[in-house]
Computed example of a mutant assay.
Amino acid sequence: MAYATLDELKGRIDWDLDADELRIAAGALEDASDMAATYGRDWPEETAPRLVRTLVLKSAARYMRNPSGYVQSRAGDETLQWSDIGRDAGTVYFTREEIRLLEELAGRKRGIVSAPVMAWGTKPRGPDAGGYVPVDYGGDTFPLFSDGVSPW
């Protein structure tokens, strides 16, 4: 399963791929698609959002331009270094921003959430049902126990 085709990837690369590069490119597309499904969700290929295809193509093209993961190139007295690749050099990867986009497309939101928790077999009751104590800051009462008959 791949969210993009080899022909689409060829359109993003500025050289003609030989047989070995075609094989590597097909693997890169599959890897990027698997990662997109992991960070986002497992969209059916025909209904995946266009942005998923775009991100898969960007990741695979990035890998094809530097499959060995070089972070420095030297020619004569000139040196060029890429410091933003880091530990992902030589792999198919998504940037933090691309991962965030995939998560948003899947409906996932980062952040802290709260969930109400109560003892097994209890039912939520209003403050006048007993078992609630006042709080110092003047807000809502706090449930201290689940038995409305006995205060302890």
Rank of each mutant, 00 (worst) to 15 (best):
R65W: 00
G69Q: 02
E78K: 11
I13L: 15
E78Q: 15
L29A: 11
W82E: 12
V56F: 02
E46T: 12
T38I: 10
E46A: 10
S73K: 05
A60E: 05
L55T: 04
A61F: 03
T38N: 09
T54I: 02
G86Y: 14
L55H: 01
A75T: 01
D16T: 15
E21D: 15
R87H: 07
T38H: 03
R41K: 14
V71G: 15
P49G: 05
A60T: 07
P49I: 04
G40H: 05
E45S: 10
R41N: 13
K58M: 00
L51R: 15
L17S: 08
R74W: 05
S73N: 00
Q72G: 03
E30R: 08
I85N: 09
E46V: 06
M64E: 00
D18P: 12
M64L: 13
T54K: 08
L51S: 13
A60Q: 01
L51I: 09
W43H: 03
V56I: 11
A19G: 09
G40K: 02
M35R: 07
G76P: 06
R65H: 15
A48Y: 03
G27H: 09
A19F: 04
W82Q: 12
I24A: 14
R87F: 05
D34Y: 02
W82M: 12
A25G: 09
V56A: 10
D84C: 08
L17R: 13
L51K: 14
A25L: 12
R74T: 14
S68M: 06
A60H: 07
W82S: 12
T47P: 03
D18G: 14
W15C: 03
K58N: 13
L55G: 10
D16F: 06
R23V: 12
D42H: 06
